[in-house]
Amino acid sequence: MAINIKNLTKEYSGLKVFESFSIDFNDNVINCILGESGCGKTTLLNIISGIENYSSGKITGVEGCTFSYIFQEPRLLNWYNVRENMEYVMEDCGIPDFEDRIDKYLKITGLYEYSKLYPHQLSGGMKQRLSIARAFAYPGDILLMDEPFKALDMKLKKELTGEFLKLWKEDERTVLFVTHELEEALMMADNVHILGDNPLREILRTDIKTLKGARSGSEEEIVLKRKTLYSVFTGHNKEE
């Protein structure tokens, strides 16, 4: 089911982050929310997942849904090893053969042989890979991603983006992915929603420019779409 947000309003001690904000996300595609830092991208994901409340508005398409979440930082339990970190979230998910599922995703992400290592023994890239494996192993209906590659260098970013897409193609669930980097959006997303970022937040929240099928179509079409997206995003920046 597609996710629809209608007239969402969210305030933090008097400051309006969203006012009458509406947006739709397609199901079983990678939806990217692209915007400058501080424009409310993470807040939006937290509202959709139920981590944060909102003042008013209506969100449909997430009722009874479970979520997987790849956070900016891996959020691993330092006292559990790689496998135990996976088991910790899988134990209560209701899948009887969850150990096999853990094996599968540890193998796909190349972490199987490091199952006994603890987070402090892993590199930054391996930690984030574990966070990705955990999110895919968990049977969440919707996968949320909050700038998961932000702290990584370009080489690692490309490597993990490739791994992510490989995993997603095996299990095409709805993805909501936020980033402030155009390149990341171009590499990963099917649909890109550019969030306006004006100091008068409450006015421009509804200023969303959407490009559908950013990664689909013929090679020429993709190039054209990417050019369009690039001009929209950079043009949007110039307006500021």
Binding site: S49, L77, V89
Partner: peptide, 21 residues
């Protein structure tokens, strides 16, 4: 609180949140 939010999101049981976090 980030770890607690993670556990809540993955619907980890309260007893396991106590034991694991």
């Amino acid at each position: 609180s980030d770890l607690l939010a993670m556990a809540k999101l993955y619907k980890v049981k309260k007893s396991n949140i106590m034991r694991g976090i």
